[in-house]
């Protein structure tokens, strides 16, 4: 089956779970910005975890030349098939020749399109994930973003199509995006080089999501926080690390971050909250709250087991 890109949206990439184990060679981790939405999209489209997907900013339009099953997820996602609005977070049958239009209704947020089947896309360094900066992945394996006229080959999973019980994630179980609740942060790295006052400032102030947000990092603006360190040696930057350069304005390091860096870090955003933060829009206000690593792990185990239970119920 061919999926043809009719309209590319603002920034659309082929992504998957990313590159594991190769940061020591300098290859960034990559992977989905909102891994929760990505995982649900594949589950709802009857794919195995880790199957490639499209991560799109803006509205994207595609045409498929065979019957298939798709699912769209993300923050405030929208989907229509041949002009008819369809429910997101739900498996949808698409007839051959139909046009799929999907995106997020919130400007700048990401929507995920999973198409059931086996994606025939090139892999580099163990992953199909597109990293523009590293010229890796994408249809040409040179890190190109999707553009009009591109065709993605997917061997549609025909086995499911007639008999399959369509899957729906009930509304009340869809992730809450937005920042009514604080983003949890695990104190770590150079945490002890920040003064108590700096830490209080960080926890009690609101930070505004700037327009400098991309797959490498999210710059926030607000009360400055500085560390008492002059020089430090470059070291590995983990997902969600909160880097504070000289100007005291925090940068949260995201999926396509460089592997090493020399700015002081006060810790990492909890793995439970990375997806929510990745869907932030410029201008939104975010509050942070510190959480012990063991509590963060407990939250993560709960979140994971809850998802497994839900998937079991939906199956």
């Amino acid at each position: 089956m061919r999926i043809e890109v009719l309209s590319k949206g603002l920034f659309s990439l082929i992504i998957d779970n990313g590159r594991v184990g190769r940061q020591r060679d300098g290859f960034c981790e990559s992977g989905p910005m909102d891994s929760n939405a990505y995982d649900w999209a594949n589950f709802l489209a009857f794919n195995l975890d880790g199957t490639p997907c499209i991560e799109a900013i803006g509205e994207m339009r595609l045409r498929v030349d065979e019957d298939c099953i798709i699912a769209v997820t993300g923050r405030n996602p929208s989907l229509d098939i041949d002009g008819n609005a369809k429910t997101t977070y739900q498996s949808q049958k698409v007839p051959a020749g139909a046009t799929i239009t999907f995106g997020s209704t919130s400007l700048g947020c990401k929507a995920y399109l999973a198409v059931g089947g086996n994606w025939q896309v090139p892999k580099a360094v163990g992953s199909a994930c597109t990293v523009v900066r590293e010229q890796l992945g994408g249809l040409d394996n040179k890190g190109s973003v999707l553009k009009e006229g591109d065709c993605i080959e997917v061997l549609a999973n025909t086995r499911n199509q007639d008999s399959a019980k369509m899957r729906t994630l009930p509304q009340q179980h869809i992730d809450d995006y937005g920042f009514l609740e604080s983003i949890r942060v695990i104190p770590g790295y150079q945490f002890s080089s920040f003064s108590t006052v700096a830490m209080r400032t960080f926890e009690t102030s609101s930070y505004t999501v700037s327009s400098a947000i991309d797959r490498m990092g999210f710059r926030l603006t607000g009360e400055p926080v500085t560390a008492d360190i002059e020089n430090m040696r470059s070291e590995a930057i983990h997902l969600g690390a909160i880097q504070v350069p000289g100007d005291g304005q925090p940068i949260v390091m995201m999926r396509d971050r460089q592997t090493l860096g020399g700015y002081p870090k006060l810790g990492c955003v909890s793995p439970c909250d990375i997806s929510r933060l990745a869907q932030a829009m410029p201008g939104e206000k975010v509050n942070f709250v510190f959480q012990h690593e063991e509590e963060a792990r407990a939250d993560w185990l709960l979140m994971t087991s809850r998802r497994r239970r839900l998937q079991g119920e939906i199956l």
Binding site: V20, G21, Q23, R24, R233, S234, E235, A236, H238, T259, L260, P271, E293, E294, R297, W300, L301, T304
Partner: peptide
């Protein structure tokens, strides 16, 4: 064990939280 990332004088060790704690 998920990943080790060495640098000048440091080594980051990333683990699978479902299998182990720190």
């Amino acid at each position: 064990l998920r990943e080790c990332v060495p640098s000048y004088d440091s080594l980051l060790i990333v683990f699978d939280m479902t299998l182990i704690d720190s």
